[in-house]
Amino acid sequence: MANLKDKSALPAYYPEFYTFPPFYTRQPNAASWSSQLSQWRSFILAYCRAHKLWRLNLADTMETDLFYNKSINRKLPLPTIREVVDDLVKSSNAEWLSSEKSIAYIYWRTPEDFASQIYSWIDETGQKGTVLTLLELTEGDNTTQQEWYGMDQTMLVKCLNVLVKKGQAQVFSVGDDKGVKVW
């Protein structure tokens, strides 16, 4: 069993209490719960960021390292995961896909941030005014370094809508695909 003392085996963004069994039980005491909640919030955001996860499917991730620490055989129960994600939604760091709350978008970076990143990238690469398909943006070989590489289509549209609202872009459908023009 990896020696727990040296957490170096775990990536830096893992929370300090990852090996603390009570971390996986929803604490009834308000003060304990608030610190527990904030640690879980940042862990989910950091985890999704590191694994470039745009959506969080609760059922699937239940068994992953995110919610299940095999070494101490503890896992965060489903209702508590929902409670944390609800809290993320409140601070607009997440959004449920559907009402039965089984999958959620995780904005480990807010749509506004992504929008400005995309805008400045298009600006730098001088592609203002040209029409770009969404696929180009997310799977184009020149955007591999960008943070939003591989982003989910629906989520990309959400980010571009920010630019549209600011009047800096226009989204329209090209055949069965979607394109965007930024100026």
Partner: peptide, 15 residues
């Protein structure tokens, strides 16, 4: 703080 598993409820000093 409490740690509920099917083993029952374990109690720890709260960090």
């Amino acid at each position: 703080v409490r740690d509920t598993s099917f083993e029952g409820v374990r109690w720890w000093k709260s960090p």
